[in-house]
């Protein structure tokens, strides 16, 4: 147990972090902020600032991409370290795979968002019907790539529902979380110094 060390994470990593905790790979507290805040960067900043203030006597590992305008400024605080990556997809997949998928026109879907896809697309992004969602997604992307990290059982019905609503084919990419674990190990060691 590292004294006074905490992970403040986007809930998009909930499944992966909980698995690492259950395996004893992480033995520090993890605090989550709602991944739907991705659509509201100003609110994310306010809530994250408040959470960092709450843990001001802790060393902090932030598991967020560059999701609000001043995210990178936290790294100037010697008590804070952030997982490297532009966004959650790059944090989980690594730079090379992330860039490859983006260049292929993929909309990358992580398990937590797959489970909450209606909340994300309908409630938060405002695409109430497939009629509005499909042209938007087709203009921006060629396919959906679901990143299977082993937590959400491959649910054919769910994938078909997502694919149909968004009007794009869905592929599955199986990814280990070894890279994520290695990054967290490194950050925990650096924070303990």
């Amino acid at each position: 147990m590292h004294p006074n060390l905490v992970i403040i994470a986007c809930s998009i990593f909930k499944y992966e972090l909980e698995l690492l905790k259950s395996k004893g790979k992480i033995d520090i507290p993890v605090v989550y902020l709602n991944s739907m805040l991705h659509m509201y960067p100003k609110e994310l900043q306010v809530l994250l600032d408040a959470k960092i203030e709450e843990y001001k006597n802790f060393k902090i590992i932030l598991m967020f991409g560059d999701c609000h305008a001043r995210m990178l400024d936290y790294e100037n605080n010697q008590n804070i370290r952030r997982t490297p990556g532009l966004n959650c997809c790059e944090i989980l997949l690594g730079n090379e795979k992330y860039k490859q998928l983006r260049k292929e026109g993929a909309f990358i879907l992580l398990p937590e968002w797959a489970e909450r896809w209606k909340e994300a697309f309908v409630d938060y992004m405002g695409f109430k019907t497939p009629k509005t969602a499909r042209p938007f997604m087709n203009e921006m992307h060629k396919k959906i790539v679901y990143v299977d990290t082993g937590f959400l059982k491959q649910n054919t019905h769910l994938f078909e529902e997502i694919s149909d609503f968004l009007g794009l084919p869905l592929e599955i990419y199986t990814s280990s979380i070894d890279e994520l674990e290695a990054v967290l190990d490194r950050l925990m060691i650096e924070s303990a110094k």
Binding site: Y40, K42, E43, M125, G126, F127, K128, T132, P135, F136
Partner: peptide, 14 residues
Amino acid sequence: RGKISLAHGYISGK
């Protein structure tokens, strides 16, 4: 001001 959704922004553009 974050008062309309992404979908509204997109549809107004279209």
